[in-house]
Amino acid sequence: MQAAPSAPSAPSVTYNVLKRREAMIAYLFIAPTLVGFLLFVVGPMIIGIGISFFKWNLLTPPVFVGLDNYTRLFSGDPRLGTIYSTTVRLAIQVIICNIGFGLFFAVLLDRKMPNFLRNFFRLSYFFPFVVSGAAVAIIWTFLFNKDLGPLNYYLGLLGVNERINWLLSSDWSPIAIIITDVWKNVGFYILVFLGGLQGISRDFYEAAEVDGATGWQQFRSITVPLLTPTILFLLVISVIGALQIFDQPNILTGGGPGDATRTIVMYIYEQGFKFFDMGYASTLALSLFVIILILTVIQFRLSRSWVFYQ
């Protein structure tokens, strides 16, 4: 990794003392991080696995129930299938929209234009990303309002005569959540794609132009292949993020109507902090962890066949 610091040309005894002292200092330096890491990352992971074998409502002592929570996870919970399929469907749509729109706007922004204009666009797209998900969701509950919301009003002007019941219909509420999420996050994707685009040498395009390649051909054969590392990065972190969507549905729809927009993290929250079923909530959390882990590993494996490193 890192070359050892140049050994002072002193006798080896002193050198050993120095080396030991350096290690001591290093342990002191990493101590705060390590203690926090053990207490709040490793500890909870292990405790979580432990709790998953118990039934515990926090008020009475925990009762060991063996694999009951796991049996319930795999076969005894009629809501879980719906909730996971809602989560996965929302995640897929959010990821596709964010990556698609992100790439689209990044390519447009990468063209020649006055600097003030580019800065203005970049700022306006990125700003919602730094605003809290809670504030964004509250803003959108008003925008989505069926009777007084601006969205339905302008859709009406465009000829959509029926007032859409964005937050209370099971057809539209997932779309409302996707719109809110993309509005909030697409700026991040644009910025990362812009970074990737700036890393592509102009020479490739000049060479392609000499060969008479059209804009679309250049996009397909130069831009996209050279952006595949960026796409992989965004894909990995957006899968992790999108499977954990919580703020927006919790505030916009509360998971409803029925379970139409209830995500797995909302369900974990509900089981843990509304029904106080700590054991099952931990089991659900572990199932999400395993799914995310498997998906991440699969993505890295598959990436060997489609990601192109220069």
Partner: peptide, 26 residues
């Protein structure tokens, strides 16, 4: 050094929501 650094890095992949319940209990 390397093993600790690797452990720290791999924890980036643990979704924070997974440790919600146990952290609450702690």
């Amino acid at each position: 050094k390397n093993i600790v650094f690797f452990l720290l890095l791999s924890s980036l992949m643990i979704p924070s929501q997974v440790t919600l319940v146990p952290t609450f209990i702690i």
